[in-house]
Design a protein around this nucleic acid. Structure first.
Lengths: 232, 232
DNA sequence: ATCATAAGATGATATATATCACCAATGACT
DNA sequence: AGTCATTGGTGATATATATCATCTTATGAT
């Protein structure tokens, strides 16, 4: 992890500003942003550790992260992935003292860290900001809930197809992708074993639905993949 | 469904007030509550239908409801259950035009319906209310997400045990319960088949963990049930 | 460059879960 | 009271998934 100067970028010009701060005037923005710190992470670093005190409001500037939790039997479980404009620091931020999940980068990532206290002050003062923030929070949690419902109703093949489609269509917007996660992580996300994820990818390959070279995956037949995702 | 007069109960004296309106002064409360309508539902009625426009902010006064959605292959899926003080009308309320789930009563239920516009006006004007509401919203979605993660990591037996414990400990706070849902609904919630839910309950019975008489269930050995819920 | 470690891959087998078929019990409705 | 639909229940069997063992191939550290 490396720290960037707080003057490296300006909130006023930030393209992410629309996410939360579009309804905030420049004085308020200055108040919140004066304490902002930017951090950079290489792929594979832990950004937030489950159990830590929540003091900050985190903004994903670029990159990709995963949200994980430890199950009581010591296994790792992935709740969801987040890219810029998805919101990261939302679960529990307003409802708990400590994080009940971890956040790690699965690609080189940079984040902005704002003091949660300042954000709360802005909520108290600026109603439009509150409403806007509530919408974003609600959107983000809706997505996690519905995504997990989709996974829950599917079988192994459908779940693996679902993950491929997610990264292809929603993250990279390309039929050729470099998977940012391992087969094990796919398994941790969809609740199946690593071996079965690998086997399923091999079958997709044998059936001419995808081509694979390690983490590089080329979706040859997206329609069939979608059909599998729907049905299986 | 039957409608009660709006004067049947008073928001000012409502024991549920602390849920959302503790930070609201009496003038604001009057504004929101002047339009309030109270509805009563018998067990088994639909309160909100998936796809309907969201115009209201719904408050669960008493009873018990289930949140459901249709999957693309026409099956019913249960997202979660909610009792008073859990929040019902939270998913999507601030992020979507239409409900993407249905709400039905699984016990006799009464709700308060507030105009969403009035609630939004209060958000704009009252920062403490906004922050409080955000906390409640965040708590409610956290619970749904974590509960679904727990279910996802468990096997059939653990999932069924999980449901029994949920109703026993969190809803009825009693080791003898009358299940408000059918075996099929348990299956729709945990993502398994009805037959296997029935079989699992039979096995719990045979093993002396529970006693059953139809929907009346007596949890004889809660410790073993919890162990199954953790491990299985 | 080399070693150690993790990731990817595959097969054999055990276990878990779904499916299908059937019947009994219950409740709702004329 | 009787019929019809729904729920609860069980068994036999097929299918899906997990487990275990083994191997190859990347990857990272020194």
């Amino acid at each position: 992890m490396s720290i960037n100067s707080k003057y490296e970028c300006s909130c006023v010009e930030c393209k992410l500003k629309t996410l939360f701060f579009e309804k905030v005037d420049s004085a308020e923005l200055e108040m919140v942003c004066s304490s902002k710190i930017e951090y950079q992470y290489k792929k594979g670093e832990v950004i937030i550790r489950e159990g830590e005190l929540i003091n900050d409001f985190i903004y994903l500037k670029s990159g990709l992260v995963k949200l994980t939790r430890q199950t009581s039997d010591g296994k790792e479980q992935i709740l969801s992935f987040a890219k810029p404009f998805d919101f990261v620091s939302l679960l529990s931020v307003f409802s708990a003292q400590r994080y009940n999940y971890s956040v790690s980068s699965i690609e080189d990532t940079s984040i902005c860290l704002l003091a949660l206290e300042d954000v709360k002050k802005t909520i108290l003062k600026n109603g439009m900001f509150s409403l806007n923030l509530m919408e974003k929070l609600s959107e983000a949690t809706d997505m996690i809930i519905l995504d997990n419902m989709e996974i829950k109703r599917k079988h192994l093949h459908g779940r693996v197809a679902h993950v491929l489609i997610y990264f292809s269509e929603l993250v990279y917007k390309n039929s050729t992708i470099r998977l940012p996660i391992s087969r094990r992580e796919i398994a941790e996300y969809i609740g199946m074993t690593t071996e079965n994820v690998i086997r399923t990818l091999s079958e997709f390959k044998k059936d001419g639905i995808i081509r694979t070279f390690g983490k590089d995956i080329d979706i040859v037949d997206p329609e069939r993949l979608k059909a599998i995702s729907q049905h299986g």
